[in-house]
Each structure stands twice: as structure tokens, then as C-alpha cells.
Design a protein around this nucleic acid. Sequence first.
DNA 1: GCCTGTGAATCCATTCACAGCT
DNA 2: AGCTGTGAATGGATTCACAGGC
Lengths: 219, 219
Amino acid sequence: MATKNSKGARIPEPTIERLPLYSRPLEELLKADIPVISSETLAKLCGVNPAQVRKDLAYFGEFGVRGVGYEVASLLKEIKKILGTDRKWKLCLVGLGNLGSALFENQNFKRRGYEFVAVFDSDPEKIGRILDNGIVVEHPDRIEATVARLNIEIGVITTPPLEAQRTAEILFAAGVRAVLNFAPIQLRKPECCVIENVDFTVSLENLAYHLAKLGKHSN
Amino acid sequence: MATKNSKGARIPEPTIERLPLYSRPLEELLKADIPVISSETLAKLCGVNPAQVRKDLAYFGEFGVRGVGYEVASLLKEIKKILGTDRKWKLCLVGLGNLGSALFENQNFKRRGYEFVAVFDSDPEKIGRILDNGIVVEHPDRIEATVARLNIEIGVITTPPLEAQRTAEILFAAGVRAVLNFAPIQLRKPECCVIENVDFTVSLENLAYHLAKLGKHSN
DNA sequence: GCCTGTGAATCCATTCACAGCT
DNA sequence: AGCTGTGAATGGATTCACAGGC
């Protein structure tokens, strides 16, 4: 997990997490035909410190020009290359409930190069159903075969919590090495694989905590 | 935003973010009638360091018994009290697209005490539609009135990115002080309010980065 | 003996401040 | 003159290690 840059320096995880943040405004600037941006302006757009922006970017190379700033188009291209967003990624979805369906139809995914190419669900009612792009809902038994056949690289888990761990294991066994998990449960994973958790209720509990505090002292 | 405990010590934000993590396994243990747990076991269940668990909990009081461990039931109750999960919170949803609908129907929310009591969408096709619990979809113009009438405390934004900022402003003006934002955009907010962002594509970009690295050096 | 609570030590990330380039 | 790239300084959070209590 300890990733390094060309000079062998370790790249902090928070840096990686900020790169997508930088790329969002850069896309807007590109559309608006603004050719160059300073670390200060970009920082303001993202709500971070200018030195932070410069340091983050400098881990990966010298993208800026002293006295001038960063060229928007080339910087965006570099960030995409770093993040691996300069190519397409194939996803499969496991669990076609409300959330799963919403994700499947979400246009943001495809827009950024993430494409669902297979969908699994254990509900007999759903198996065989034909979705957009002619994707046919399959039984989870078929994960191994389909992942191999289509070279699927990322699994998205939207099953009920109790099935999530087993699902993850099947995915990993099938050769998937990255999982985006929406089930509110801590998944166990092999060393070589990556899991990213998205738990809305955790975010809500954070909000609730801060709300309660806000209410207590001060207005 | 700098919250303090009874001794006046500042409580680190990461601590707050871990509390929900602890509560998940505790709920399981409670169901399984396991009365007591050590920091070491709980840490293992959550994938963190035992000292971390102890330090986090100690910010809020002396919940453990030396030589024994933590009583599951009372610890869970304490955590819920700290997070404000020991009571109900009223939410409103703005943006009834695929994602919005999925969230509205998501049972995890209600299970944890978060209840949608109003839904807004600007699509005339959707306005007036009657959802579960007799909730009627309203035009965003009605946010101010409805938030006031129902005492709504948390807003959930699932609008397209371009409408998100305006939506947030309307919500804040209406007296909502906490927002859960699913639009992939950085929202500006007043000092006194809290925003939590959920952006799936950021998580995916993280995964892609780590996948690319995994593939590069080593197997 | 065992496990919590906590000061001290370590580790890591952020920010500062300026040297270096255009 | 202006803005990047970066060593140095700061500020936090994590982990260690042990004192304190059951």
C-alpha cells in the first residue's frame, strides 16, 4: 500500500485523496478556456492551502512553471494519468436493489470512465432481466466465470450487509482486486486487494454529532 | 467546529469519525449477547489499534473497567449518546432522481433514526407525486416553509451539480444547519453549518490509483 | 494477572518561508 | 516581479509503554 514516486519518496494517502478534488475545478476551467492557473487560485477553488496544492503535485513531477503557474490542460491530463482516469475501467455490480440500480444508471460513472459490464443478484425474480446496454442480470454463482471472461477489475457491492463478506470473497477469488463497498460492514480483505467503503449513515452520524455540539454551546 | 470534552480537551475529528465504526460491531455483539469486550478485540473487529480505541473512548468518560473491559450494552449506549444517535433526526431530500429515490427508500436510514419527512424536486412531472408515508413531492420553492413547519434539521442534496450550490443556500437560509451532499461539487457554506460530502467517483478514483500501482511493481 | 486510562514518544501531514527559475 | 518547488518548522494524531485499579 505504501506507494512511492520516482524519487522513492512515499506519497501520503491524503495526497491521493485530494487529487480528484483538484481535477473537478480543472475540468471546469478547461471548459471555460482558462489556460493557466496558480496554486493559490486552485487552492481557493478546492478549499485547501496553496502550499498543499504545490506539494501534492510536486510528488509526481514538476508540472508548473515558476512565475507563471500550471497549464490547466496538461495538469489535468497528468492528474488523470496518475489516478488512472485516463483509461476505462470495467465494473461489476453485485446487488441490484434500489441503491444498486441507482448506481447502475448513474451517469457520473460512465462520464469518468467507469462502466458496469455485469450485474449479479441472487433474487430469481431479477435473474435474466435485461438492463441497459443489453446487460443480463446473473446469479452470483456466475461471478467467477463472468469476471474472467470480461476482465472485470473493480467490484461494487450493494448487497445486504450479511451477504457482503461472502460476496467480497467470491470477487477476490475471481481475481477482482478492488472493491467499492456500500454495505455498512467492515470487510476483511487479502493483502493484495483494496477496499473503499461508502457508508452514508457514518456521514449522517458525523453530521448529527456536529449539530448536537452546535446546539449546545453558542447559538 | 473545535469541540471539547468535559475536561476542555479538544476532541480530534478522526476520533468522531471512528465512533460509528465502533458502534457497528458493538450492535452485533449486543445481539449475540456478548456482555463484555476488551479494547483489543474491538480494535481487531474494526481494523484499528487497541490504544486508539481506548484513547478515543477515554475522551468522553471512563467507560471501561480495568482488568475486565467494556460492557457492550452500556458502551453502545454511550456512543449513541455522544453521536446523537439516541434520538430521531428529520431529513429532507432535494432531488428525486435515481439516487435520491434509492436513498429515500433505503432502510438503513430509518433503522438508525434518520427519517425523510419531506422531498423536493423541480421536475413538474414529479411534483405532487405521493411517496411512502404519504410524503408529497414539493417544488424547491417550498423548502423554506416546509423546513420551518416540520423542524427539519438535515438536508440531503441529490440534485445535479449545477443546482447543488443554490439548493444548499436555500436550505441554509431555511435554517437547516447540516447537509449531506451527493453532488460532485465543492459547496460553499456559512461558518455555523456543517457539510458532509459523499462522492462515489472520488472513491473509485482512489481504487483505480491503487490498482494501477498494484499492477506496476510486484505481481 | 489482566485490561483500562494516559503521559511520553513517535510518526505523519500541513503550513511556513524562502531559494530558484522564468 | 511572480509563482513554483521544497527544506524546515509546526501542529496533530497514533502508538508505545506503563502506572493505576479490579
